[in-house]
C-alpha cells in the first residue's frame, strides 16, 4: 500500500516502505507549460531534503525540482529524457522523476496529504 504526499513546491512522493517515488504535480506541469528538457540526478547521489535534485525546463523557463526528503537516489526515469512531454501528459503517473531511499522517515511529517495540497493550490 503506497501513500502519496505533497510538498509546497509542488512535488509528489509515492511512499512504499522506505522508498519514495518523486515527481512534479499536475498543477506544477500546468504552471510550467510544455516541458522540453529534463535533467535527472545521478543514481547513487545522496540528496539532502530541499536540495535541487532535478531540473525541468519549458520553452519559457527552467525550474528546479527539490528533494522532498533526504536520501540516496536509487533509480531515475530515463524515459523522461527522450520524451519530456510525458510530464505534461501524465505528471503524476508515468512521468515520475526518481526514486529515493528515505534516510529519515521523520522528514515526512512536514509534508501534505492530498486534501491539504488541494487546499494549498486552490
Amino acid at each position: 500500500m503506497t501513500m502519496t504526499l505533497y510538498t509546497s513546491d509542488h512535488e509528489w512522493l509515492a511512499i512504499d516502505g522506505d522508498v519514495a517515488t518523486v515527481g512534479i504535480t499536475d498543477y506544477a506541469q500546468q504552471q510550467l507549460g510544455d516541458v522540453v528538457f529534463v535533467e535527472l540526478p545521478k543514481i547513487g547521489r545522496t540528496l539532502k531534503k530541499a536540495e535541487a535534485a532535478a531540473v525541468v525546463e519549458s520553452v519559457k523557463a527552467a525550474s528546479d525540482v527539490y528533494a522532498p526528503v533526504s536520501g540516496e537516489v536509487l533509480e531515475v526515469n530515463e524515459a523522461l529524457a527522450g520524451e519530456p512531454a510525458l510530464i505534461n501528459s501524465d505528471a503524476q503517473g508515468q512521468a515520475w522523476f526518481f526514486k529515493i531511499k528515505i534516510a529519515d522517515k521523520s522528514e515526512l511529517g512536514g509534508l501534505m496529504d492530498e486534501a491539504a495540497y488541494k487546499a494549498h493550490t486552490a
Binding site: G33, D34, V36, S58, V59, K60
Partner: peptide, 12 residues
C-alpha cells in the same frame, strides 16, 4: 497574455 490554452509550443 504570455500564452493561451494551446500553450507556447503549439502556438509557436
Amino acid at each position: 497574455p504570455v500564452q493561451y490554452p494551446a500553450g507556447v509550443l503549439k502556438e509557436h
